[in-house]
Amino acid sequence: MEKFTILQGLAAPLDRPNVDTDAIIPKQFLKSIKRSGFGPNLFDEWRYMDHGEPGMDPATRVPNPNFVLNQPRYRGAKILLARENFGCGSSREHAPWALMDFGFRAVIAPSYADIFFNNSFKNGLLPVILPAGVVDRLFLEVEATPGYQITVDLVAQKVAAPGGQTFDFTVDAFRRHCLLEGLDEIGLTLKHADVIREYEDRRKATQPWLYV
């Protein structure tokens, strides 16, 4: 996994609560057996006027001019500003894959659905939680200020707005460590292979029916 330390980038506002994984990446695109290539279909049903199917050339599609990510001022955005309960719905990791493939490296929202939150960390997409009041304010500022750049500093656990104000956030120590170092979690867990085997041996003795 790529390391995540400090990210500075353009922010784009997605002003809807409860954005679900079906909206982030509609199911017809889940048929892929790859991890990449989902970016052109991120928010497909909102982003295009026509119906998207796998294999279509994005250049031939009809973009919805009213959808926020289609506005030129947000081109190249790396940080998605979102509302509460972002990523609710399914467990599909295609949602963080699509956000990252599009170019996002961080999301800022007051709250997330649990599985999406988890999946994001595993892929190096940082889901930052800030209080609803702060997020409100960022929404107002982003919309009022073209070229609005936010800094997300995972080392110091601070978000900095262009005006110089900073907002603290926290990330679990273990997750933060994995992101900062870009660690392979499976490799990390396998260092404890002996402990896992001991655990299994104990259970085979006490609950043998789980191993038949």
């Binding site: 467990s91 599909r92 990791e93 599985i115 999946n119 595993k122 979690e185 499976i186 396998l190 896992i196």
Partner: peptide, 30 residues
């Protein structure tokens, strides 16, 4: 790798959905 894994909790199991990275993690490490 499906959010409705919560279904199996009806049997007093701890059952929950995971993403694909976690599917790989479970395959590799249990």
């Amino acid at each position: 790798g499906d959010s409705h894994t919560s279904t199996h909790g009806a049997f007093a199991a701890l059952a929950f959905g995971i993403g694909t990275s976690e599917v790989e993690h479970v395959l590799a490490t249990q």
